[in-house]
Amino acid sequence: MLQAYPASKVLAEKAAMAFAEENGISLVTLCPVVVVGGAPATKVKTSVPELLSLISGDDDMVDKLQLIEAASGSIPLVHIDDVCRAEIFVAEKEEPAGRYIVCRLNTTAIELSHFLSVKYPQYEPNVDHIGALPAKPRVSIWSDKLVKAGFEYKYNNLDQVYDDIVPYGRTLGILPF
């Protein structure tokens, strides 16, 4: 099940590329990593609960966070606002071409637990639930092509990301006020 989601993304992208080539269409794809950020939704179907799990106390979501890291070699993050801005950026380019990875941060559950312990001590982050994962990312994913084309991220660090998702988590009831 863990491999089904990324595999479906790769297969869909390959099918789109084949269709574009067969029909003489210029295709640009954006491939965001783990996307987080506030939204107008009252029920969340994104990675926000996983990213808040160390301070929400939701052990099932901590397990999912660890699965993301185990499968990816890190917890690669990008804020939804940056994904939307990247879509506009490539759409407005004169000669957009190819595939763009959209990723700003690479972290680990251990790095997150240390960060959250300092930033949000009132939530008493659950650092005991983290298994034997590495302290530093084993793999880092970067947006070199997108950045070299001139794109600039707005959300550049964990402070900025969590300053957005913690209030969103409170609104959703994932975190207490």
Rank of each mutant, 00 (worst) to 15 (best):
M1Q: 06
Q3G: 03
P6T: 01
A7Y: 11
S8T: 14
L11N: 14
A12N: 08
A12M: 06
K14Q: 14
A15T: 15
A15H: 00
A16G: 02
N23F: 13
G24M: 05
G24W: 09
G24H: 09
I25K: 08
S26C: 06
S26V: 15
L27F: 11
V28G: 05
P32C: 08
V34E: 01
V35Q: 14
V36T: 08
A39E: 07
T42G: 00
T42L: 11
K43Q: 14
V44E: 15
T46C: 03
S47R: 02
V48Q: 05
P49T: 07
P49E: 06
L52Q: 02
S53M: 05
L54H: 10
L54N: 12
D58N: 13
D58Q: 15
D59Q: 10
D59N: 04
M61E: 04
M61I: 04
D63W: 04
K64F: 00
L65F: 12
Q66Y: 13
Q66S: 09
Q66D: 11
A70D: 11
A70C: 00
A71T: 01
S74M: 04
I75N: 12
I75T: 09
P76Y: 10
V78I: 12
H79D: 12
V83G: 02
V83C: 14
V83P: 07
R85Y: 02
A86M: 01
E87C: 15
F89S: 01
F89I: 01
A91F: 03
A91N: 05
K93G: 00
E94F: 13
E94Y: 05
E95F: 07
A97S: 13
R99V: 01
Y100Q: 03
Y100H: 08
Y100M: 06
V102D: 12
C103E: 00
C103A: 13
R104F: 02
L105N: 05
N106S: 01
T107A: 03
T107H: 04
T107I: 01
H114F: 00
H114G: 00
H114M: 04
S117A: 08
Y120R: 08
P121R: 02
P121S: 12
Y123F: 13
Y123W: 08
E124Q: 09
V127M: 08
D128L: 04
D128N: 06
D128C: 03
G131E: 06
G131D: 11
L133R: 09
P134V: 02
A135S: 14
A135W: 01
K136T: 09
P137E: 13
P137V: 10
P137W: 06
R138Y: 11
R138G: 09
V139T: 11
S140K: 02
W142Y: 11
S143F: 04
L146R: 10
L146G: 06
K148D: 14
K148Q: 14
G150I: 07
F151Y: 12
F151Q: 03
Y153Q: 06
Y153F: 15
Y153L: 05
K154Y: 02
Y155I: 10
Y155N: 05
Y155T: 12
N156R: 15
N157M: 00
N157P: 10
L158M: 11
Y162T: 03
Y162R: 03
Y162E: 03
Y162D: 03
D163A: 13
D164A: 09
D164F: 15
D164Q: 07
P167K: 06
G169F: 14
T171W: 05
T171K: 14
G173F: 12
P176V: 03
F177R: 01
